[in-house]
């Protein structure tokens, strides 16, 4: 194509582009507003004194701006310690979950064997049952852990350690792990098989093909699954409060900061402040991860 002709075409495209840019911006702003709005009200109350909350003239901007809530809640939650514990547990759990769910998903997608269809169905079924329903037997399972009687009575007490989390993560049984397995399965199933075939013809075994050919092309899916695992473990209260009872974690501390206080407005102040302190590190992780993720995708160009 002649350069001038090409330039004209690009120019023409840009002109056509403008109405879409306007519509897109309007939509993004509107949707962002809907999402941010509830959070904004929390953000502002965290910096209010109690009297501001009942002051009808105060809507968004606190009249008496204060950092007292933040300081108090940091102390009540033992924030540094809780942050460390939660960060450690969450990192361990999400790395393990990404690894196990990727393996399982790849096995179901690319290495079919008799019964792999049935296993896929079981994965979906596990996902249907929310943990709340099986939590009591699950707790007893770890309290008297005996592997169906293989270990001597009365079994080992795993409560209070990382083991219940580690064991469930390694086996793809953690929080909503079923959807991770299904995401990875569909992702790998959707990939082109030409490179895979070439690797097999060159004599690579399935493990090498997986590690050096298929895995690098799945980075966006890996990052996405990691983020979900991270957020869900970070915010988890059900498992953490039962398996780690008495220990200092962000969610368990957060659930307690209002106890014993009879004034509802103070409870709300504290809760909102605590919630912000819980969410803030997550947002930081997301911003860092997603930047890395886009760059890595654009750098490699992800050719098949």
């Amino acid at each position: 194509m002649l350069p001038t002709l090409r330039l004209r075409r690009i120019w023409f495209r840009n002109i056509k582009h403008w109405p879409w840019v306007l519509v897109r911006t309007a939509l993004l702003v509107a949707i962002s507003y809907v999402i941010i709005f509830p959070l904004l009200s929390k953000l502002s109350t965290a910096f209010m004194t109690e009297s501001d909350m009942w002051d009808a003239t105060v809507r968004w901007i606190p009249r008496r701006f204060t950092l007292e809530n933040i300081q108090l809640v940091i102390e009540l939650m033992s924030y540094p310690r809780a942050l460390f514990n939660t960060g450690l547990l969450t990192t361990v759990v999400s790395v393990l979950q990404v690894a196990s769910c990727t393996l399982i998903g790849y096995g179901l997608a690319r290495l079919s064997f008799r019964g792999s269809g049935l296993i896929t169905a079981l994965v979906a079924f596990v996902l249907v049952v929310p943990p709340q329903v099986t939590i009591i037997p699950q707790y007893l399972n770890f309290r008297f852990f005996n592997l169906y009687g293989l270990l001597p009575e009365p079994g080992i007490n795993l409560i209070g350690s990382f083991w219940p989390f580690v064991l469930m993560s390694v086996t793809g049984m953690g929080i909503k792990n079923g959807i991770f397995i299904l995401i990875m399965r569909q992702f790998f199933k959707g990939m082109s098989s030409s490179l895979e075939e070439a690797a097999y013809v060159d004599g690579a075994d399935p493990l090498r093909t997986f590690l050096s050919i298929m895995l690098p092309n799945a980075i966006p899916a890996l990052v996405t699954v990691f983020l979900f695992a991270f957020v869900w473990q970070w915010n988890d209260f059900l498992y953490t409060s039962l398996f780690m009872s008495g220990k200092t974690f962000l969610t368990t501390m957060l659930s307690r900061i209002g106890t014993g206080i009879l004034t509802p407005s103070i409870v709300t102040l504290r809760n909102n402040t605590g919630m912000l302190l819980l969410i803030a590190p997550l947002l930081l992780v997301y911003v860092l991860m997603q930047r890395h993720f886009i760059e890595s995708v654009e750098r490699t160009g992800l050719v098949e």
Partner: peptide, 22 residues
Amino acid sequence: KALYGIFFTMPFVVGFVLFFVN
């Protein structure tokens, strides 16, 4: 491939038996 498939999905089967069936 089938052999590796069984090997790859083994963790889930173990987890299903240990932490779901019970």
